[in-house]
């Protein structure tokens, strides 16, 4: 596992240059290569899920940002701003609330390093284990399936919307029995992935709110075979849920950026060159 700086750093630059990352669409793009309404493969979008387990209701919203945009730090000023439906829903909820964030980006194919999933993981949870790219493909489908279920609910709850409607970032509130419900058997706190500690708890009886780390689990790219290990990149930042202000907040972790070895070598060489030049001049 490696740490990846989200904004302005090497990984982001590389991501920006990589092919196959589209700009955001407004409704949830499930990021899969096939079988999605309205297209046959484009960049997946992030979505937020919040659960009032006690009252058996949940809220979800399309965050309107693609995997590529998020990784490159290309976030709109309103990223994470939740809608009136959230405000209305949150006002009726009981404590605590549980939330997670995800996105799928499998449409590029497993030979591409952009093929992967963005998954939240509770801050403080143990480091995830290793998986193969073959297993990663099943993780992709879990997240994709969640996006599909949310889109179905969005259509039902937003008059005039269709499964191919990308005109607005849609949200929905659902309850038990619906496949878009947070507690639906294929999602819940594990995000449908066995053993994945993917959710954080907030507004929990005086206990400090939990936050979420964010992982990009992806193919290493290139000559990948089924047994090739997937790459776990822990992004530098954390998600928190600000219920009072109806915001999902991404807080980048700002740390000093170490200069790469090549820069030190370059500077060292430059100094040496200047000294040598001085010496040569002296000899003349």
């Amino acid at each position: 596992m490696k740490m990846v700086k989200r904004q302005g750093y090497q990984w982001a630059a590389a991501i920006c240059l990589m092919a196959g990352i589209n700009t955001a669409q407004a409704a949830i793009d499930n990021g899969a290569p096939l079988i999605q309404a309205g297209g046959t493969g484009s960049a997946g979008e992030l979505f937020l899920n919040v659960w009032d387990q006690a009252a058996a209701t949940s809220y979800s919203i399309d965050l309107g940002t693609t995997v590529g945009d998020f990784l490159s730090g290309n976030l709109s000023p309103t990223f994470g701003h939740l809608d009136q439906r959230f405000i209305d829903w949150a006002a009726t909820t009981s404590d605590p609330l549980i939330f997670n964030v995800a996105s799928n980006n499998s449409y590029v194919g497993f030979q591409d390093p952009n093929m992967g999933v963005l998954l939240s993981r509770r801050t403080g949870a143990s480091d995830p284990g290793h998986i193969t790219v073959s297993t990663l493909l099943t993780w992709n489908t879990r997240v994709r399936d969640r996006a599909i279920a949310l889109n179905i609910a969005e259509v039902a709850q937003n008059p005039g919307a269709t499964a191919t409607d990308y005109a607005a970032n849609l949200s929905e509130v659902t309850t038990t029995g619906a496949s878009s419900y947070f507690g639906y058997t294929f999602w819940t706190k594990t995000m449908g992935i066995s053993g994945w500690d993917g959710s954080a708890k907030v507004r929990s009886s005086g206990v400090e709110d939990e936050t979420l780390d964010f992982y990009f689990v992806h193919s290493p790219g290139g000559s990948v075979v089924a047994s090739t290990r997937a790459v776990f990149d822990k992004l530098e930042g954390q998600f928190s849920l600000d219920i009072a202000n109806a915001k999902l907040v991404w807080t980048p972790t700002v740390t000093a950026v170490p200069l790469p070895g090549a820069v030190w070598l370059f500077l060292g060489g430059l100094v040496s060159l200047l000294r040598l030049q001085k010496r040569v001049v002296a000899e003349v």
Binding site: A32, P33, L34, I35, S106, G109, F110, S134, L137, T138, T141, R142, T185, F186, T188, T190, G192, I193, S194, G195, W196, V225, A226
Partner: peptide, 18 residues
Amino acid sequence: SPCLGGDSSPKLVEPGGF
């Protein structure tokens, strides 16, 4: 599947894998 529920139910294969 989906009988076991949640993350215990295997997913049916789809194109795009090995």
